[in-house]
């Protein structure tokens, strides 16, 4: 993928020689491994099941600027009948780039860019090892389809990290509505039975054969026991991956590049990590983008370094997400108290 903006040779060599200097210096005085300030809010889209807005590099006073990403999840019921739908639910990620974020790109180039982002994100997030347990509704009949949609509203560099952070925050925020299975029976004229009564109903009829070990689900449909309840959180929400982009220039690398720095050091290594609660961060995906190469021996150390930063990012994000939860619950409580 080529650089998104063009900079002059003089600017490029200015940035590169500053990175090579000792101590290295970046255009805004950061050290190599510093991030710009990250702004995050969850629950920004009222109609979504979970949502987040994230901005890297904007100062709170400014009206615009920074890399801004909006992420939202929406759950949809699917009938499992052999088409795309999978028993136990599935996740589909889509990334869209606002033309306002890339005014210089042609519509075709924008489509390509969206496709790149979509593929990377979808492959990592919908990986079976991360599949949440509570996306199924009725075994073999109904399942949730989780649509994770992200929009890049503006780009000031480091889009991959922003996308993954926003995706994680939105997934963390997602609530799955509680469902109850119902079945239809001819006997007794009682059309609906809650799930816990199903077994009783069946034992009243002819006894199942001892040879029949298949589990034949008898529930045919479901309903929502409590319409107003948002539901339970998506299981395994601590696992959702984060990615760290290492921008590699000669023997050094740096994090959170601005657009100009990306143009001056176009080779980047993207490593996505998942965070199982019991074990250390697990590598979910590695991508090497841009011209140039990295020797195999160096790759290993780079990936382990990335793990260190991913863990830092995870810890900071975790604190922020819990803060956000608290803030929103507090607000809801205050509003309730005012009534």
């Amino acid at each position: 993928m080529s650089a998104l903006i063009s900079i002059s040779k003089a600017e490029k060599s200015y940035i590169q020689s500053a990175l090579e200097a000792t101590p290295p210096l970046r255009e805004d005085g950061r050290s190599l491994y510093d991030f710009r300030s990250v702004l995050l809010a969850t629950g920004v889209a009222p109609l979504a099941n979970g949502s987040a807005r994230l901005n890297i590099g904007k100062s709170p006073e400014e009206g615009g600027g920074g890399t801004e990403v909006l992420a939202a999840t929406k759950l949809e019921v699917e009938t499992v009948d052999g088409a795309d739908a999978v028993d136990g639910g599935r996740i589909v990620c889509t990334v869209a780039c606002s033309p306002a974020a890339y005014p210089h790109l042609s519509p075709n180039a924008l489509d390509d860019l969206q496709h790149d982002y979509t593929t990377t994100l979808h492959q990592v997030i919908s990986h079976p090892s991360l599949h949440p347990k509570n996306l199924g509704i009725l075994r073999g009949k109904k399942a949730w389809l989780l649509n994770l949609d992200l929009v890049v509203l503006s780009d000031a560099g480091n889009v991959y990290d922003a996308l993954f952070m926003a995706a994680r925050a939105a997934m963390w925020d997602t609530k799955v509505p509680a469902t109850r299975a119902v079945q239809y029976t001819a006997k007794g004229g009682n059309a609906k039975k809650p799930a816990d009564e199903i077994e009783k109903m069946e034992t009243e009829g002819d006894a199942p054969s001892g040879f029949d070990t298949r589990q034949i689900p008898s529930a045919t449909d479901f309903d929502l026991p409590d319409y107003w309840d948002e539901g339970e959180v998506l299981s395994g929400r601590d696992m959702w991956p984060l990615c760290v982009t290492l921008n590699i220039h000669s023997s050094a690398y740096f994090l959170d590049a601005s657009l100009k720095e990306e143009a001056a050091a176009p080779l980047k290594l993207i490593v996505a990590f998942a965070f199982p609660s019991t074990s250390p961060p697990r590598v979910q995906a590695v991508r090497l983008l841009g011209p140039g190469d990295v020797p195999h021996t160096r790759l290993k150390s780079l990936v382990s370094e990335a793990g260190k930063y991913a863990q830092e990012m995870y810890n900071a994000l975790e604190v922020k997400l819990r803060d956000e939860d608290f803030r929103r619950n507090q607000k809801a409580r205050n509003r309730f108290a005012q009534r």
Partner: peptide, 9 residues
Amino acid sequence: MITFASFPA
């Protein structure tokens, strides 16, 4: 180093 902050209200 990475730190998270809130959007201005």
